[in-house]
């Protein structure tokens, strides 16, 4: 089967705007968009630039905007995209494009770092593992699944227009520790997200929840953080 893949190309060394280029590739319906990109890069145009590492949906490096929606190229099958029509592939929006499908992820990681995404404890270290009940674990199980692909943050219209907004992923990353019974940094993290550019910027658009390739209920996590702030109780 011949599929037509239309890619937004941008070369920083050539002055000018990004432009669309269409490639025709022969693919199986069960191939993934990542396979199409590989075929183009390996067989037609070696300058095509994109990130990928694991190729199996665990590393989070190949989030891109495919047919107008943020997805992982390695988890998107051609047959699920209506291959009769052109398949469009663009970089994720809201982060500076470096080349073709590669964006500068630093602002995204900066937001993640600023919510202190590590266990905060006080007192002596226990000599054995920190035990937690299943019920306590269930409270943040969903947000432990994040692979930092940025599909959510770069699907958020508030982030598009206001790059200072922490974005859904940073809130997911904070949620994972705020609702962890073993963590003692809750107050600090809540205060960080009480910022002008924190959770209150969220307008419950649900784009993030739709975009997440891990099926995390991102909007719900954000609302839980808002509730924790309002009632000062997690």
């Amino acid at each position: 089967m011949d599929a037509h893949v239309k890619i937004l190309r941008y070369n920083p060394e050539v002055v000018g705007e990004a432009e669309w280029k269409t490639y025709t590739v022969s693919l199986e319906p069960t191939d993934r968009v990542l396979d199409a990109l590989h075929k183009i890069k390996w067989e037609q145009d070696g300058t095509l630039t994109f990130r990928r590492s694991c190729a199996h949906g665990v590393c989070g490096s190949d989030a891109m905007r495919i047919n107008g929606r943020n997805r992982l190229a390695c988890k998107t099958l051609i047959k699920d995209l209506n291959p009769e029509k052109e398949i469009t592939v663009e970089p994720i929006k809201g982060l500076p494009v470096l080349k073709d499908l590669v964006v500068d992820m630093e602002p995204f990681f900066d937001a993640y770092r600023s919510v202190m995404p590590f266990l905060v404890t006080t007192g002596h270290e226990p000599t054995r593992e920190r035990i937690q009940s299943q019920a306590d674990r269930d409270r943040f199980d969903d947000t432990t699944k994040c692979i930092l692909c940025a599909a959510c943050t770069t699907s958020c219209p508030v982030f598009w227009s206001d790059g200072q907004y922490f974005g859904p992923q940073a809130i997911v990353g904070a949620h994972r520790f705020i609702f962890d019974s073993r963590d003692e940094g809750t107050e600090q993290r809540l205060e960080i997200l009480n910022d002008k550019e924190g959770v209150w910027r969220c307008r419950t658009t649900f784009n993030c929840t739709e975009a997440c390739p891990r099926g995390i209920e991102v909007t719900k996590a954000i609302q839980e953080v808002k509730r924790a702030l309002i009632f000062r109780r997690v």
């Binding site: 770092r113 600023s114 009480n194 910022d195 550019e197 924190g198 209150w200 808002k226 309002i230």
Partner: peptide, 23 residues
């Protein structure tokens, strides 16, 4: 650690609940 983080929570000074109440 007690110093908290530098880049974290931009605008750390003058933190208020204004956005919370506004919401």
């Amino acid at each position: 650690r007690s110093r908290n983080l530098k880049g974290g929570g931009r605008n750390r000074s003058g933190q208020t609940n204004f956005e919370l109440y506004s919401w």
